[in-house]
């Protein structure tokens, strides 16, 4: 067991786990931040997507010790206090989720895209979002939601 201090959603969290424990299990089972989901454990499905210093990463393959050095970890819980992030608002307007399980990962992946490229083309969206699977088949609405969020962000709505 080793002690780690994590910077998650601008707060400090202390945790004592074995070296090599995945960031996903630390968040979900040790810290109770369960918005980030487990889907495959091998970075194939993207349901565990979060941001490390603003970049989308898949938490299931990240070892905790490599992300306890002050890196800024942002999870779905840190996106807004009240569903007010433009991407979250667009997601609601598009009625995108079905079962909802992959949607935290979808949203975190989409937020990273729009932060880097607020006005992506449809092909850029598809390419960027390709890493997150949805079994319910909500892709059409995810695309709509991202285009809507992009419009609202670029128009300053």
């Amino acid at each position: 067991m080793a002690k780690y201090r994590l910077n998650i959603n601008t707060k400090k969290f202390d945790v004592e786990v074995d070296k090599g424990t995945s960031l996903l299990w630390v968040l979900r089972e040790h810290l109770g931040l369960t918005g980030t989901k487990y889907g495959c454990g091998i970075a194939q499905c993207g349901t565990c997507t979060l941001h490390i210093d603003g970049k989308p990463m898949q938490a299931c393959i990240l070892s905790v010790e490599n992300y306890a050095n002050g890196q800024k970890i942002t999870t779905i819980e840190g996106l807004s206090e009240d569903c007010s992030h433009p991407v979250q608002k667009a997601w609601i307007e598009a009625q995108a989720p079905q079962c909802g399980y992959c949607q935290s990962g979808q949203i975190m992946q989409a937020v990273a895209l729009l932060e880097e490229n607020p006005n992506p083309t449809r092909e850029e969206i598809k390419s960027h979002m390709n890493s997150v699977l949805c079994r319910c088949g909500t892709y059409m609405r995810i695309l709509d939601a991202i285009e809507l969020a992009s419009k609202n962000i670029t128009e300053g709505v």
Binding site: K37, E77, L79, D82, W91, Q95, A96, Q103, I107
Partner: peptide, 13 residues
């Protein structure tokens, strides 16, 4: 749906 876009929707897992 709001609970499914802020991560608060609770699944058994």
């Amino acid at each position: 749906i709001p609970s499914k876009v802020d991560g608060s929707a609770q699944f058994a897992i």
